[in-house]
Nucleic acid binder design. Structure first.
Lengths: 244, 244
DNA sequence: CACAATTACGAGGGTCGTAAAAATG
DNA sequence: CATTTTTACGACCCTCGTAATTGTG
């Protein structure tokens, strides 16, 4: 009863063939592979038997790849690369399955979002990254991110978004100053945003005055792949219930 | 000391994974693979260990591919196809290395060429095929033929050609007829070519009269890949010395 | 209770490494 | 005579199959 079924080819043997092609002699290849020369010699014969084709020109003292062998070795190298790629891709998928990558154009939205995701998805790793809209959107489509925070609803196929509150620029004024005294008060005006204030608490001795001019405030949107809607349901629920 | 080196992945294990994907249960897949269920069960665990990734959702009574597993099985199937293709391509090359495929637009040139090749290249199989110029030229470039006989020198990159004599259409006249009696002699004129006459010997009781009108004769050219010039040296020498 | 997956265990085959042989430049 | 490939031989590991176990619908 034969050990193997229909496909008797083994990747490890192809690895040996590729090594022989690189090294040129059995001795050198065996040394690179950390096996004995006889083992390599046997493996090469076995490969020829399995393929039913001569791969080498043999003299008593010398062994070289013939035309068949060169082709086989080249294809083998390619196949080994594909096998390696298979493993790496599966591992990458597994990793992406147990991490939620979050990208954002500004740090503020992440302050509450990242901790919320951590507790909503226990056992998942949360990674956050700041970047520009262009990069984030591309990364979302490529799978680098599962969730990105932008300053407007993106328009891309397979991508959805929900509003995620906003942020308004504020003046930071000494608390005892009347508003009208501003111009005389200081040559060093200070800025902040409402979200910073809510996170860090009021700045000591100052009051935050939101600027209501359009353009001085930002509205955030959380975007995700439509295919991930169910997976991210808990996160979206949090986002929708978030007071912007 | 481990049995295998850096690449521990085995094609036979991937074959099992692909079978499991097709069949859905270990029992069915094992049956298809002609191995026992325990063997298959162990192999699947081994695959997971080697990849360092879970591929299945396991209950006591049921085993299913998870997202990782589905990807792995799909890529495995692709890889197995590539491995199969590798063997087939190497075998095809080997076959082409020990056969000389000859194509021609007409049978006459093959009458002398094929036997000549047989004796010039002992141990080689000679295959001949009749087809049109278009097909032959494409086949020459694709490697289906090593040598093709055309009615003119081809103009294609990587292709060379040498003249290979010609063939002229003849009338076959009753031997005792003077040329002027032709029109009265018969309502069934007969044709042949000079090459046919030389091959078969003179037709009994007739004389062959070559027709010298342009268009009534053909000049043959033997075309081959420039890369094969050395391999075909003996054949080309015969062709050049061939009295057209 | 039939079915599916796992664990236990002994048998067999394949590959390995060491050692010796043969052949070449 | 050093280098390279091949053959011989014994050992070990790995996988296999059979049989028994556990858990499920």
């Amino acid at each position: 009863m034969p050990k193997r079924g229909a496909y008797m080819l083994e990747l490890y043997d192809l690895e040996k063939l590729a090594a022989f092609r690189r090294c040129g002699t059995l001795v050198a290849a065996a040394q690179e592979l950390r096996i004995s020369q006889p083992a390599l010699s046997r493996a090469m014969r076995k490969l020829e038997d399995e393929m039913g084709v001569e791969l080498f020109t043999r003299s008593k003292n010398r062994m070289e790849l013939n035309e068949n062998g060169v082709l086989a070795a080249e294809l083998a190298e390619k196949l080994l690369g594909d096998a390696d790629s298979l493993v790496r891709r599966v591992r990458a998928l597994d990793r992406s399955r147990r991490t939620i990558g979050v990208g954002s154009v500004a740090p503020a939205p992440l302050w509450d979002l990242a901790p919320a995701l951590s507790s909503l998805y226990p056992g998942m790793a949360i990674t956050t990254e700041l970047s520009d809209t262009q990069t984030l959107l591309a990364g979302l489509q490529a799978g680098t991110y599962s969730l990105v925070v932008l300053t407007g609803p993106p328009d891309a196929p397979g991508i959805e978004s929900v509003p995620f509150g906003g942020e308004r620029l504020c003046f930071l004024l000494p608390a005892n100053y009347a508003f009208g005294e501003l111009l005389r008060a200081s040559s060093l005006p200070a800025f902040t945003t409402d979200r910073v204030q809510r996170r860090s608490g009021a700045t000591e001795g100052r009051v935050a005055v939101p600027i209501t001019d359009p353009g001085m405030s930002v509205d955030y949107f959380a975007a995700y792949r439509t295919a991930d809607r169910r997976r991210l349901a808990a996160a979206l629920k949090f986002i929708e219930g978030y007071a912007g």
